[in-house]
Design a protein around this nucleic acid. Structure first.
Lengths: 143, 143
DNA sequence: TATTATATTGATAATCAAACTCAATATTAA
DNA sequence: TTAATATTGAGTTTGATTATCAATATAATA
């Protein structure tokens, strides 16, 4: 996997905020880019498997950092834990979530987005973000 | 406010599950029906204002009970606390949330719902519920 | 109505994810 | 190389919510 672009995004963000590029941040970015959705715990366990000593707090801190530079987005599906969504080379998308097996499918639908804008206009709102989650059973679970 | 219908819904649910109608449950239902969206803490404080002694745990338990009998629904907007949405005499609806003042506007849009169904069908999902939240600035805050 | 069985209550403790603390250490700039 | 500053990791703390449990209230039964 080529992570040049993502590494550049991180570096630019660090430079702009007088932050430093550390071993831990590079490692966490690398593992994160190999996933679609992870919890902080998932990532932490993955790191420990490699016999590297990185604190859980650092994982949380770095995931939040990745959110700030646009590489990740927090999601709160039905579960209580926060999922970090890898959005590094995707357009905006929403989610179908299987409540039985936990499978997550991403989708985008511009017709829905346009209707959302209409709703906002009618209510004199300026929308900055939105969240659309469809919960149900996937093909394999609904049988 | 006439709460006959809602009280009947609660009573039916209690009877069906061999649960009991208590002073506390009646009081919490009454206050809840006067609101659109509350946190458990909000309701707790409201009760203490009336100089009635009801435990916070009972407030949580009763709000969850109201969810089970279809009078309330949990919402998790940007905040960390759970909001209980009074859905006693409303159809399904979604939300516009002002990230500055916290104002919540409810809306419904059947065209969006139909498109959601199309997305689900295309992905062979059977949808049971969904969540659509539009975040932005309301008319008063966007100036 | 009195009795019995069962559910509920309230105070507090337990839980859990996530954020904070701070001395030791690593990174960057000078 | 040195100095200035940011980061780390271990552990502690936070805050919302749920669990515990003896005392009490409610409902069913006699």
């Amino acid at each position: 996997m080529n992570m040049k672009r993502e590494t550049e995004m991180l570096k630019r963000h660090l430079a702009e905020h007088r932050l430093k590029l550390t071993r831990q941040r590079q490692l966490i970015l690398e593992i994160f880019l190999g996933k679609d959705h992870v919890t902080a715990e998932d990532l932490y366990r993955e790191i420990r498997k490699r016999n590297v000593r990185v604190g859980l707090a650092t994982v949380y801190r770095t995931l939040n950092l990745l959110c700030h530079c646009g590489l990740a987005q927090q999601r709160h599906f039905s579960d209580t834990r926060t999922l970090y969504d890898n959005v590094s080379n995707k357009d905006h998308h929403d989610h179908l979530i299987c409540t039985r097996c936990g499978k997550i499918i991403e989708f985008e639908n511009s017709a829905i987005e346009r209707l959302q804008e209409m709703v906002a206009r009618k209510n004199k709102f300026a929308i900055y973000s939105h969240k659309l989650e469809l919960y149900g059973l996937c093909r394999d679970c609904k049988i």
